[in-house]
Computed example of a mutant assay.
Amino acid sequence: MTVHLHQEDLPADVRFADGPIAVDTEAMGLIPGRDRLCLVQLSDGKGHEHLVRFRNGSDYSAPNLKALLGDPSRLKLYHFARFDVGIMQAYLGIMAAPLYCTRTASRLVRTYTDRHGLKDLVKELLGVDLSKQQQTSDWGAPELTDAQREYAASDVRYLHALKAQLDERLAREGRTELAQACFDFLPARALLDIAGWPDQDIFAHDG
């Protein structure tokens, strides 16, 4: 496994294998607009992870990265798509869909637990113990540590394998179509977050 770090865009000669591409982000916090996007992680599941770093003051133009993420023929795999697509929409100006969210799939089929974090999912389904020590580290620091790079890469390293396991469970429980409907809605849910409805259920009947 090799982790490649790039500054502010993917190099033009980086190529990804056909099929889904795993995507994750790191930011200064969880509120787009207040908390800036610092890192976008990518993997095609073939053993290499690419990290695209945005420093304070970056213009987020990133044409090569945007071309990849905005490709409507390329399925993007996330663990918490609602946040990732939202913050990329806010800073990169693209909706990185169509998408598949392993956290959403987990909530639909692992109803025997309330533990749907990536660490729990990878441990149960793949038998791998992920370290989350760097989860709350400073992603806006002048330089990323080796531990931060490895943590960021591990967030996309297992998403292809998780999708395969979750797809089997979705089919077994008869929830494949329901899951797809949820995935299709997530871009709109992210836009509601950005527009100021992060917590309200606008579909609820409240009087």
Results as ranks from 00 to 15, higher is better:
K76I: 05
L77C: 00
L77S: 03
L77E: 09
L77Q: 04
L77H: 10
L77K: 03
L77V: 11
L77Y: 03
Y78N: 07
Y78R: 04
Y78W: 06
Y78V: 07
Y78A: 08
Y78E: 09
Y78Q: 09
H79V: 10
H79P: 09
H79I: 07
H79D: 10
H79R: 13
H79G: 06
F80C: 14
F80M: 02
F80E: 02
F80P: 05
F80N: 14
F80G: 03
F80D: 09
F80T: 11
A81W: 03
A81N: 08
A81I: 08
R82Q: 12
R82D: 02
R82I: 07
F83I: 04
F83R: 06
F83P: 02
F83W: 06
F83H: 13
F83C: 06
F83N: 04
D84T: 10
D84M: 07
D84K: 11
D84Q: 08
V85K: 01
V85I: 15
V85C: 02
G86D: 01
G86S: 03
G86A: 10
G86H: 10
G86C: 07
I87F: 05
I87P: 08
M88C: 15
M88R: 09
M88I: 13
M88K: 12
M88D: 04
M88S: 02
M88L: 07
Q89A: 15
Q89F: 05
Q89R: 15
Q89D: 14
Q89S: 08
Q89Y: 09
A90P: 00
A90S: 14
A90W: 12
A90T: 01
A90M: 05
A90N: 11
Y91V: 11
Y91P: 06
Y91L: 07
L92Y: 13
L92W: 11
L92D: 10
L92S: 07
L92T: 14
L92Q: 12
L92I: 11
G93V: 09
G93H: 13
G93M: 06
G93N: 12
G93E: 03
I94K: 13
I94F: 06
I94Y: 06
I94R: 14
M95R: 12
M95N: 04
M95P: 00
M95E: 14
A96E: 02
A96C: 06
A96W: 04
A96R: 05
A97V: 14
A97D: 12
A97N: 13
A97L: 02
A97I: 01
P98A: 01
P98R: 09
P98D: 01
P98W: 10
P98Q: 03
P98M: 09
P98V: 04
L99A: 05
L99E: 06
Y100R: 07
Y100V: 11
Y100H: 14
Y100K: 00
Y100S: 05
C101K: 13
C101I: 03
C101V: 10
C101H: 06
C101G: 08
T102Y: 05
T102C: 14
T102N: 13
T102S: 15
T102V: 05
T102H: 11
T102A: 12
R103M: 15
R103D: 01
R103Q: 14
R103V: 06
R103L: 15
T104I: 15
T104P: 00
T104V: 15
T104G: 00
A105G: 01
A105N: 02
A105V: 13
A105W: 10
A105I: 03
A105E: 08
A105Y: 08
A105L: 11
A105P: 05
S106W: 12
S106N: 11
S106Y: 09
